[in-house]
């Protein structure tokens, strides 16, 4: 059987010689990308691929929502209509408005369980025309998300293929596997407080005098099917994860960070 297939393949290649350079070669994805609006991530990944599935995974407080809001802000600023399928109704509109998301351009679907999330995503993909559809499963237990059949991710990938829609999946651990065009893993570095509180002192400082200032997010590029700027096709795998250039860090700040900065500058 294998011999027959090989012979048939060879026969076809011979017949198509001169007309197609490599009929069975998988063409690299030449997707357009949209920026995250975070320079470090954009430099690392090249942006969010249109017509592809981007998966962002990480534990609690690792910056998944920050990346989501940043992507939403970027897309809504470009007048795209976006949709958010919220797995546990945990989206904070105030935070989103502070991050620059235009709420009137955002369709928020507040789900209660994973079945609702997947069906809602199906409806949105069928509807079409969205600039970004985000499926936020990061607050759901990882075990529940792990039980989602792989064919669901394949179906989602097929639904967005050849469209300008960006499908963004957020979860605690990577589940979409090879269906994702871009996979990022996030991690939280120690958060920044306005003064160290952890050092034992005989007279602990007044906790009111300290503020949560922000944190540093560690980003690892696990997989990317995007064609590089030089034209070469690169598929990065876990094995190459630790190579230089496949990680990035960026800092976040709290909403009151700018206010404090202004006050201290005026003093």
């Amino acid at each position: 059987m294998a011999v027959n297939v090989a012979a048939l393949r060879s026969q076809l290649e011979t017949a198509l010689a001169g007309r197609l350079p490599a009929p069975f070669a998988r063409l690299p994805i030449q997707a357009e990308t949209a920026p995250f609006n975070i320079a470090e991530i954009d430099k690392l990944t090249g942006g969010l691929p249109h017509g592809g599935l981007t998966e962002i995974s990480g534990p609690c407080s690792s910056g998944r929502a920050t990346l989501l809001l940043s992507a939403l802000a970027s897309r809504t600023a470009q007048a795209h209509v976006c949709a958010l399928v919220d797995g546990r109704d945990s989206f904070d509109p105030h935070s989103a408005a502070a991050a620059g998301v235009k709420l009137e351009q955002l369709l928020w679907v507040r789900c209660r369980d994973i079945d609702q999330c997947l069906r809602a995503t199906d409806f949105l993909l069928q509807g079409g025309g969205f600039g970004l559809i985000a499926l936020d499963l990061s607050v759901l237990p990882p075990k529940t998300v792990r039980y989602v059949p792989l064919n669901v991710w394949f179906r989602f990938r097929r639904a967005v293929e050849n469209t300008s829609t960006i499908l963004l999946l957020l979860d605690q651990e990577s589940n979409a596997g090879s269906c994702a065009s871009l996979v990022l893993r996030l991690g939280l570095e120690p958060p920044r407080w306005s003064a160290s509180q952890t050092q034992p002192t005989p007279f602990p400082p007044n906790p009111c005098a300290h503020l949560f200032d922000g944190s540093q997010i560690h980003v690892e590029l696990v997989r990317s099917r995007l064609r590089s700027a030089e034209g070469g096709h690169k598929v990065r795998s876990l094995a190459r994860m630790n190579e230089a250039g496949l990680v990035a860090n960026f800092r976040t700040k709290t909403k009151w960070g700018d206010f404090r900065k202004t006050v201290s500058e005026s003093k």
Binding site: G63, D92, A99, G214, F250, R251, T252, K253
Partner: peptide, 18 residues
């Protein structure tokens, strides 16, 4: 232009438990 890494910080997002 935000092409320069570290040029600006992103607002930390908050998730609400409802």
């Amino acid at each position: 232009n935000i092409d320069v890494p570290g040029d600006r910080e992103t607002i930390a997002a908050f998730r609400v438990f409802r």
